Computed example of a mutant assay.
Amino acid sequence: MPRLLLLLVILGIAVIIYALFDCIMSRAESVRSISKPAWFFTILLVPLLGAGLWFLFGRPGRDDRPAQRQKRGPTAPDDDPQFLRDLEVRRRQEAREAEQRKRDAEERAREAEKKKNDEGTASDGKTA
């Protein structure tokens, strides 16, 4: 019997300590029901009951925890701002390259036309 009692006391102290640390580590604006300092003193002054009430009514919900929100990244590529920026940069670069290829092709066509005209004028001058 004394061993069981000792085990229950140790377990109760562990729950109280966990509740205190959980209360301390949570953000003040995400704590439910009463203020964070009030929860801290409730857990400290009314140990097991305060810890139980903290877990039931004071602890922030899962959606309120900032660490879990930060761990989740974008779920799809179109939700990722970095991906969208990279995509836009790539699109603009490809458009510039296509425009440059078009200008180069037009320049080559003009040079070929000019060369053809020069050869035609030169051949007309030789026969006359």
Rank of each mutant, 00 (worst) to 15 (best):
L45I: 14
C23N: 13
L56C: 07
D118K: 06
L53T: 04
D86Q: 15
F21W: 12
A19H: 06
A98V: 04
D63W: 09
R69Y: 02
A122I: 09
L56T: 06
D118G: 00
P74I: 08
L44Q: 02
I13R: 14
K114I: 01
F40Y: 15
E119T: 02
A95T: 09
D80E: 07
A122G: 00
A28T: 10
L7R: 11
K126C: 07
T121H: 01
S30C: 11
P77W: 15
E29M: 01
D104G: 04
G12C: 14
F21C: 08
K116H: 09
R62M: 06
R110V: 01
L20F: 05
Q93W: 05
I43W: 02
D63G: 05
D64H: 08
K102S: 05
A76F: 11
E107D: 11
R3H: 05
P66D: 10
A76H: 07
L6K: 12
R90S: 12
G125T: 08
I13N: 12
P2M: 05
F21N: 09
G120Q: 15
R65N: 01
L20K: 06
W39E: 02
R90D: 12
M25Q: 11
F21A: 07
R101S: 09
R32K: 11
G61H: 02
R3I: 04
K114E: 13
T121R: 14
E29K: 02
S26T: 14
D86H: 11
M1L: 03
E119I: 06
F40R: 13
V31W: 02
I17C: 09
L56I: 13
R3P: 01
R62Y: 03
L44P: 00
V31A: 03
T121G: 00
R59F: 00
I43F: 02
P37V: 14
I34H: 07
S26N: 13
P74A: 15
D78T: 06
I17W: 10
D80F: 02
D78L: 09
K115W: 09
L6Y: 06
V9Y: 06
A19L: 08
P60F: 13
R69C: 06
T127D: 10
C23Y: 07
S33M: 12
R85I: 05
R108D: 11
A122Y: 11
L11S: 12
L11A: 11
I10W: 06
A112Y: 01
V46A: 08
K36M: 06
A109Q: 14
L45R: 10
V9S: 08
E106P: 01
V9W: 07
F83H: 14
K114V: 00
R3M: 03
M1T: 03
G120C: 06
G50Q: 09
P47R: 14
A98F: 04
T127E: 15
I10R: 14
T42D: 13
E94D: 07
E94W: 08
V89N: 07
K115S: 12
F21H: 07
I24L: 15
L11P: 00
V89F: 06
R72V: 04
